[in-house]
Design a protein around this nucleic acid. Structure first.
Length: 746
DNA sequence: GCGCTTTGATTTTTT
DNA sequence: ATCAAAGCGC
């Protein structure tokens, strides 16, 4: 039994999985089988030690990581897996607060404000407390407030610590911000952590309940946790002291989001008895890649040395190349991709990574031009799109009408004659009475219906404005009432119809068609929630909308290359990796230049990128790069200088014109052959596409409906639902991919 | 109150 | 280059 589960672990991994009593720190280098250790450790706990999954919590950095973990655990835990808590800190805390938050006066239907909601609210606060948004960037204030919460200072702590002039300003906004959040029954991202911690501190019954429950608590990506997260982990494992944290200080890349690498040090002082296990064997990369990574990270001074090694072969040299500008760099990538594809690789084996999202543009254009299918992660995030946010705001209002940010967002979308004047007046009333804007409307409407001439509140508003507000209130009321009898999809349809949003999009809005399609995609994503009761479904759906990121929904596709930021790439691996924009000012980024510790973080970011690669790595830079219109020459990244020359091959400067293909091609060819042999012996084909690789925009043929174009593709259970627009009067059809028998046509 | 034009600023990374 | 906020005429 015992040997069964841990059989395929190496001795260190095995030791980590078997250490189940007391605090444990696992330092896991890149590619060292970290996820494997975590899942096997859980499997061992359940299968061998007889711990019920209900008593285990595993917190990961992304939902995607949690999903992967669950998937791998299914064969080990069977149906018991549903009792295992596996999620991000934020979703874990949201769950606790929904369940227990009333103990400290929290509304069960609290809204969750994401980043942009926060900034909206902060702008409004600034107006109210008379802080000029031109002198002080709302974003900067938001980041201070976020910092205060992440470090568990909160308003009081911040007030006590604050010193300089800017702090004074922030404090004024912060105070109002908290009032408005409370008034809106809303929590921001940081509150999810901050309030959970506060709940544990203030309400012993709740604290006891969860401390008793979690006999084993595990934290993944520990190097990227903040003070609040660590405090919560500590708190929950106080009783059993079985806290297992896994991380790699060299991959800490989120200090800007208040992640505190010192947590690793604190862990060792907080738990002096902790066992520390380092996983140093790398199963992922070639010696060449690992060697380059090692040299790269060795230049950091603030680090604990590690001895990473691999028994993999040497592999092929790293390709370093300079191109003239970003478009040429992108073209180089695409040409190489085409070479690799004829050789040994599928498109899904290839990723292109970059420092800033803006760099994806040139890459997309090149892919489009040469017909290379790509999958862009992040960028203009789906849930951040205007139409999706608008619809979400309506749904949030149905769940919680006191949500001021959502109300302000859609009260006049589509236009209903509620303009700035009315809105200003409404804000004033709400402020004076310390109530939400929705309640303010209720008040106005009530006063108006009673026909009181001494109607002080509405005095400043025209009758037609009051009428418009009344109509809006009735709309929300109606939606809320009807929502009880509908399912989530029906509710969405009702919202779209009754609010006039559908008509607005289709008939008047710019790019209406495209945006309507996004709405359709969003609507389809609600499908997963139909099994629950409407109320529960609505809350869960809204929560996932706020808490789910783009990497989370990333599909493993064999038929497209992946374009992704270095940050998002953490935790992923690809046989072939291109890192573009290896230039001073970009990687390392300009903003890190004057701070040595930020510079070290840039280096770690680069290290993360390099260590994503299994077999082939390309490091590219452009001689000059466009920046907001103009274009400026740049210098090669200092990180390139850290990589030993013997690990590098340079195709030669790709000067304009001429026969630049020849030399490069021969290098590529030879290298691919080497790799091909290895891959064949591995016998590992990680993808077996049973279904045709059909994606949005593809031309397809159906036996009955003929030719059409794929409008959208949405996961649906283990299958995909594709929406296809067919020609010749067959119209738009929704089909399940596995049954549709679609054939791709060119 | 609405919609057009002008002006001005602008984020690096994301749960 | 791009987008949001402010200003202005209807």
């Amino acid at each position: 039994m015992t040997t069964d589960i841990l059989a395929d672990l190496n001795s260190k991994q095995r030791e980590a999985a078997e250490t189940i009593d007391g605090p444990l720190l696992i330092i896991a280098g890149p590619g060292s089988g970290k996820t494997r250790v975590i899942t096997h450790r859980i499997g061992y706990l359940v299968r061998v030690c007889g711990v019920t999954p209900y008593r285990i919590a595993a917190v990961t950095f992304t939902n995607r990581a949690a999903r992967d973990m669950r998937q791998r655990l299914v064969p080990l835990l069977g149906p018991g897996i549903k009792d295992l808590v596996a999620g991000t800190f934020h979703s874990f805390c949201a769950m606790i607060l929904r369940r227990e938050g009333q103990a400290m006066g929290l509304d069960r239907n609290f809204a969750i404000y994401d980043d942009s909601d926060q900034v909206e609210l902060i702008k409004r606060c600034m107006k109210e407390v008379d802080v000029d948004p031109k002198r002080f960037a709302p974003r900067a204030i938001q980041s201070r407030i976020s910092g205060a919460k992440s470090q568990l200072l909160g308003l009081e702590g911040y007030a006590a610590a604050g010193k300089d002039y800017f702090d004074e300003i922030v404090l004024r906004v912060y105070e109002r911000y908290e009032q408005l959040l409370t008034r809106s029954a809303a929590l921001d991202f940081d509150d999810l952590l901050f309030k959970t911690h506060a709940l544990f501190e203030k309400v012993p019954e709740v604290s006891d309940k969860y401390q008793n429950r979690y006999v084993h608590f595990m934290v993944d990506e520990f190097q990227d946790t903040n003070v609040a997260q660590y405090a919560i982990a500590k708190h929950l494992s106080q009783k059993y002291r079985n806290l297992c944290v896994v991380g790699d200080p060299d991959q800490s890349i989120y200090s800007w989001r208040n992640a505190d690498i010192r947590n690793i040090l604190s862990f060792q002082t907080d738990y002096p008895e902790a066992k520390i296990i380092a996983l140093e064997e790398n199963y992922r990369s070639t010696q060449t890649i690992l060697g380059a990574a090692g040299k790269l990270i060795a230049s950091n001074t603030q680090r604990v040395e590690k001895d990473l090694w691999t028994s993999n072969g040497t592999g092929v040299p790293i390709v370093v190349n300079e191109c003239y500008d970003a478009p040429e760099e992108a073209q180089f990538v695409v040409k190489e991709v085409m070479n690799l594809q004829d050789g040994a690789y599928a498109l899904g084996d290839i990723a292109v990574m970059y420092r800033v999202n803006a760099q994806s543009r040139a890459l997309e254009e090149a892919c489009l031009r040469y017909g290379v299918p790509y999958q862009l992660i992040g960028g203009l995030k789906f849930y951040q799109r205007q139409e999706v946010k608008d619809l979400t705001a309506y749904l949030r209002l149905v769940a919680n009408p006191t949500d001021d940010v959502s109300l302000t967002r859609v009260i006049n979308v589509p236009a209903r004659g509620i303009g700035r004047r009315t809105l200003d007046e409404l804000t004033r009333i709400a402020r004076d009475a310390s109530i939400s804007m929705y309640s303010a409307i209720e008040g106005l409407v009530g006063a108006n219906e009673n026909g009181g001439p001494a109607d002080v509140a509405a005095g400043a508003l025209a009758a037609r404005s009051v009428k418009a507000l009344t109509d809006f209130r009735n709309l929300i009321k109606e939606l809320a009432a009807k929502s009880e009898e509908l399912d989530l999809i029906e509710l969405i349809d009702l919202v779209l119809q009754r609010s006039g949003y559908k008509r607005y999009l289709v008939e008047e809005a710019e790019r209406g068609e495209e945006r309507w399609e996004n709405i359709q995609e969003f609507r389809a994503s609600a499908r997963d929630y139909l099994v629950m009761g409407i109320r529960e479904a609505l809350t869960a759906f809204l929560e996932s909308v706020s808490l789910v990121s783009d990497v989370d929904t990333m599909e493993e596709r064999a038929d497209a290359i992946t374009l992704i930021t270095l940050h998002q790439a953490k935790g992923l691996e690809f046989p072939v990796v291109f890192i573009v924009g290896m230039e001073e000012g970009l990687l390392p980024h300009l903003r890190s230049m004057d701070d040595p510790s930020e510079m070290e973080e840039e280096r770690r970011l680069c290290y993360v990128g390099v260590t994503r690669a299994k077999e082939r790595l390309f490091l590219l830079r452009a001689f000059r790069r466009g920046f907001r219109g103009s274009s400026e020459p740049g210098l090669p990244s200092r990180f390139l200088a850290d990589i030993p020359e013997e690990l590098i091959v340079t195709p030669g400067r790709s000067a304009s014109g001429g026969s630049k293909q020849a030399g490069r091609q021969s290098v590529s060819r030879r290298s691919i052959d080497t790799v091909t042999r290895r891959r064949v012996t591995d016998g590992a084909s990680d993808q077996d596409p049973v279904m045709p690789a059909v994606t949005t925009g593809d031309k397809v043929r159906h036996a009955k409906f003929g030719d059409g174009i794929v409008v959208s593709r949405v996961p649906s259970g283990t299958d995909f639902e594709v929406t296809v627009a067919f020609k010749e009067g067959h119209g738009v059809k929704r089909l399940l991919l596995s049954f549709a028998g679609l054939e791709k046509v060119e």
